[in-house]
Amino acid sequence: MADTQRGGGTLDRGRDETKEERADRKWGELIQEVRVAQTGVQILFGFLLTVVFTARYEQLGATDHAIYIITVVLGATTTGALISPVALHRIVSGRQVKPEAVRWASRLTFIGLVLLLATMTSALLLVLRVATHDGYVPWLVGGIFAWYLACWFVLPLWTRYRYTED
Rank of each mutant, 00 (worst) to 15 (best):
residue 158 W to D: 04
residue 76 A to C: 15
residue 96 Q to R: 15
residue 59 Q to I: 13
residue 134 D to S: 15
residue 56 R to T: 12
residue 98 K to N: 06
residue 53 F to T: 12
residue 149 L to M: 13
residue 156 P to F: 09
residue 101 A to R: 09
residue 121 T to E: 01
residue 2 A to D: 00
residue 26 K to F: 10
residue 125 L to S: 07
residue 19 K to R: 13
residue 37 A to D: 10
residue 149 L to Y: 13
residue 131 A to V: 11
residue 22 R to T: 06
residue 87 A to H: 04
residue 130 V to P: 05
residue 118 A to T: 10
residue 71 T to D: 02
residue 22 R to S: 10
residue 162 R to E: 06
residue 101 A to W: 06
residue 5 Q to N: 09
residue 50 T to C: 05
residue 108 L to S: 08
residue 34 V to F: 02
residue 119 T to K: 02
residue 120 M to P: 05
residue 110 F to S: 12
residue 9 G to N: 04
residue 69 I to L: 15
residue 87 A to S: 10
residue 130 V to R: 06
residue 92 V to R: 10
residue 145 F to R: 12
residue 139 W to S: 13
residue 108 L to G: 09
residue 109 T to M: 07
residue 122 S to H: 06
residue 26 K to V: 00
residue 6 R to A: 11
residue 56 R to H: 00
residue 35 R to Y: 11
residue 159 T to S: 11
residue 52 V to R: 06
residue 13 R to A: 00
residue 127 V to I: 14
residue 149 L to G: 11
residue 88 L to Y: 08
residue 97 V to Y: 12
residue 5 Q to V: 06
residue 109 T to Q: 00
residue 123 A to T: 08
residue 3 D to G: 07
residue 95 R to W: 14
residue 14 G to N: 02
residue 117 L to E: 02
residue 123 A to D: 04
residue 45 F to N: 08
residue 96 Q to A: 15
residue 70 I to Q: 13
residue 43 I to E: 03
residue 153 F to N: 03
residue 118 A to R: 02
residue 95 R to Q: 15
residue 45 F to G: 06
residue 54 T to F: 13
residue 77 T to P: 02
residue 21 E to W: 09
residue 99 P to D: 08
residue 43 I to R: 10
residue 47 F to K: 12
residue 38 Q to S: 07
residue 36 V to K: 07
residue 63 T to L: 12
residue 89 H to E: 14
residue 143 G to H: 13
residue 51 V to W: 02
residue 58 E to K: 15
residue 8 G to Y: 02
residue 27 W to C: 09
residue 25 R to L: 07
residue 166 D to T: 08
residue 121 T to F: 03
residue 42 Q to Y: 14
residue 166 D to V: 03
residue 37 A to K: 03
residue 18 T to I: 10
residue 64 D to Q: 02
residue 126 L to A: 05
residue 131 A to H: 14
residue 24 D to N: 14
residue 109 T to V: 05
residue 151 C to Y: 14
residue 11 L to W: 04
residue 162 R to F: 00
residue 44 L to P: 06
residue 40 G to Y: 09
residue 65 H to C: 07
residue 84 S to H: 01
residue 3 D to K: 07
residue 124 L to F: 10
residue 2 A to S: 01
residue 158 W to I: 05
residue 90 R to Y: 07
residue 121 T to R: 06
residue 114 V to S: 01
residue 70 I to P: 05
residue 23 A to H: 03
residue 83 I to C: 02
residue 166 D to W: 05
residue 3 D to I: 07
residue 145 F to I: 10
residue 112 G to Q: 13
